[in-house]
Amino acid sequence: MPKNKPKVKEHRIERDWCKGCGICVHFCPKNVLDLDNEKKVMAARPEDCICCRLCQFRCPDLAIEVVCED
């Protein structure tokens, strides 16, 4: 039986902490994230998220947390 793919519940974003460096946007393997017009990160295509959490781990501002279903 293949393991169920982890599903994302929410991308929890601290807008005040995000400095808009774009590291998470560039390195997301599924192109889930974008910067909005205030240069803050937003989950533009959350349905594509595979819960790898690389955005959360690379964020220098600790501004994004990927909450997944168990």
Partner: peptide, 11 residues
Amino acid sequence: CPGCGHGTVLN
């Protein structure tokens, strides 16, 4: 600064 690696080290 924006994009500084030190925050990633903290992380």
